[in-house]
Amino acid sequence: MPASPTYLLRLWRRVRIGSNPLARCWDRIEAAALLGVVLLSLFAVPVTAALGSETYAENIKVSRDEMRDRRQTTAVLLADAPRENLGEPGVSGGGSARVWAQWVLQDGTKRTGNVVAKIGANAGSAMSIWVDERGDLAVAPTTTRDAVGRAVSAALLAWLAVAGGLSAVFWLLRKGLDQLRYAQWTREWEHIGRDPSWS
């Protein structure tokens, strides 16, 4: 929902450091701090975007290395997968379980190991797995989609950390300024109480 013109006008009046004779020193400091928080948060956007871009480049390099060192092959289940996910040992969440399986390497060597299979899969079922250069089980290589997701997450988290830190500093500064304002008002009320012209 777009901000109303009235809200934007109030925000501008709050941030603008003008020559309002009613504005106290504390008000001007608070306005300057708020303006600084907004400007620094905006300045952090291209910086965190550069971080995201670098994260993407690093993940693409990792993806190329993993694609070079790993290959996909077919494994055959040697046992039935559990019919239900009841939390028994060897059963992971998401409708899958660890099941003993066998696969054949390019040189004809047979390997066995625990692979992640769907709940209810029967012995003899074939499934795709990833193996490394030695033929051992490996996780699927990083994809371009993974690289994009990690880059966006890194940039967004970095910006939120900067904006959150700046907001926390501004909040602490405002609390301190409020204490100074309250102390000043207390002194002014005491002065009014002692001034006979107010009685």
Rank of each mutant, 00 (worst) to 15 (best):
L173M: 15
R134M: 00
S19C: 12
F170H: 08
D195Y: 07
R174G: 00
L77P: 04
L156E: 02
G135E: 12
R134E: 09
A3H: 12
A3L: 15
Y56I: 00
A57Y: 01
L156T: 15
W130V: 06
G36I: 02
Q106H: 14
P82D: 10
S63N: 06
S96D: 05
Y7N: 05
P46A: 05
E30I: 02
W100I: 02
L86W: 03
L156H: 12
R174D: 00
V99N: 06
S4P: 08
E58F: 00
E54V: 01
Q106S: 12
L11F: 12
E54T: 07
A183C: 03
A126D: 09
N85Q: 13
D27K: 01
L11W: 14
D146G: 02
L77Q: 04
A168T: 13
V116M: 10
Y56D: 05
V169P: 03
W100A: 08
R194D: 12
H191I: 00
C25N: 12
Y56R: 13
V148H: 07
G135D: 11
E133P: 00
M127T: 14
C25K: 09
A158Q: 09
G18E: 11
V37R: 08
V15Q: 06
A81Q: 01
A154H: 03
V38H: 10
P141D: 04
A123S: 15
S197M: 06
D65Y: 06
M1K: 07
V47K: 04
L78W: 07
A154T: 15
Q102W: 01
W185T: 09
N114K: 13
S153M: 10
A155N: 06
L40V: 11
E188T: 07
V148S: 01
A151P: 07
